[in-house]
Design a protein around this nucleic acid. Structure first.
Lengths: 233, 233
DNA sequence: TTATTGAACTTGTATAGACATGTTGCCACA
DNA sequence: TGTGGCAACATGTCTATACAAGTTCAATAA
């Protein structure tokens, strides 16, 4: 069973994400939450601390806990145009290859554990379009550990992270990434429809999950000529 | 005076960053830290919780608190400590301009509040070198709100964030950023000593702090030819 | 020798209460 | 009509304690 502070956390989190509490709203005070859930203040504070950590609330001494913002999915850098934001409707995903089970590449971008190496990996290659223009080229590598029927799943309109979270109870907890600016060359020119030599944003990422020793890796090429990569943290 | 948990946190943090505790080392147990500092376990746990939050330690039930990887590349993307990565020996900071109080630029990269606008901003222009090669060109804008003697401080070997944290108790809590890959041109060519047209990583950042409505803004140009930008989250 | 039990460690969860400090708004006073 | 101060309420810090649960390793039993 979930610990009590976790239950309160999950409930408040759900309410914030569902809009029961909106940006700028003040949560019930700590003492009120104590009464509501029949627990003591340190336990409530533990729940609020987790929310603070997520960036979902800001606490102010003497005032209260203020709902902050709806966070992006961890690991997904959302796209923002220079003038106006882009609705999700016009972002389409093309799957170029996979998901299929392959061996790990010879020289991988991150160090792999023995368990990961012998399990093989699930390979997924995608291009994401905004207004019919390719913006991202994205290769994901997922250790093939206890992910039944993964390759037969459909990815229509669902993000990789959403499937992991909902179907496999795997949550992205954090991670690390390396960024570079590179020149477009080779297949990137065709995939992103750019000129040779154009600056391209390149990322390598290793994402930690709620499963110990289970990571998701990806490399990402992004044409940032018309749209910046946006991230909140 | 600093609260006790903060003192323990600062001490452990310092020791980790200075290498007293190294990657993989196990910190003294919570009970031991209690005895060492004459405080109770919840207080110690508060300190450790902050370290966990910073990503400096990982806790494992039954084992202990394990010092986590110290980023090898440049932790510009991580919230805590910009220059805390890369060996300090090889990273040098040249201050090109400032810190000085100026008006905010006409068309600023982010929207500013009325309070910020009328306060003016502290301007700081820096180049950071690794092995005598310029890697970053960094412009910071800080709202000039309640920062006594800021412009007369010396920045020798201290990061901007470290000064804010230690001298003004201002901590970076989160933020947002926009990333682009651009072509080197104009003064960037000279500042970063690159060829015209070379891909350069460009960032615009707005950092939230522990002070409500107090933000730090910066734009950053980075030559990622030899070093990646590294971030943990 | 090998397997397993258990003691002694670790961190995780939770209670109950005390006092400090920041924020707000109302009420009494000038 | 202001306005200063106080009361009520918010979060921040801290003590003291208890039991749960994961890890390790050595002593014991097969």
């Amino acid at each position: 069973m979930l610990p009590q502070y976790r239950k309160v956390y999950e409930l408040l989190r759900k309410h914030i994400l569902e809009g029961v509490y909106k940006e700028g709203d003040i949560l019930p005070s700590e003492n009120e939450l104590c009464r509501l859930h029949g627990i003591t203040r340190p336990t409530v504070r533990q729940a609020l601390s987790k929310l603070t950590n997520d960036g979902l609330i800001h606490k102010h001494q003497g005032k209260g806990s203020i709902v902050h913002r709806i966070p992006q999915d961890i690991g997904i850098l959302s796209v923002s145009g220079t003038t106006s934001a882009i609705g999700k409707k016009i972002l389409k995903t093309h799957i170029l290859s996979g998901p299929s089970i392959i061996k790990w590449p010879e020289k991988f971008i991150f160090d792999l554990s023995a368990v990961e190496l012998e399990s093989g990996c699930i390979y997924l290659e995608r291009v994401r379009m905004v207004n019919e223009n390719p913006l991202f080229y994205d290769i994901s590598y997922i250790a093939n550990i206890n992910l039944p029927r993964f390759c037969s799943r459909t990815f229509e309109n669902k993000s990789l992270f959403e499937i992991l979270r909902k179907s496999y109870s795997v949550e992205i907890k954090g991670g690390e990434q390396r960024l570079k600016a590179i020149s477009a060359q080779g297949s990137i020119i065709d995939l992103l429809k750019v000129k040779k030599g154009q600056p391209i944003l390149y990322l390598e990422r290793k994402l930690e999950t709620s499963r110990p020793n289970f990571f998701v890796y990806s490399t990402l090429f992004c044409n940032t000529e018309t749209h910046s990569l946006y991230g909140a943290f």
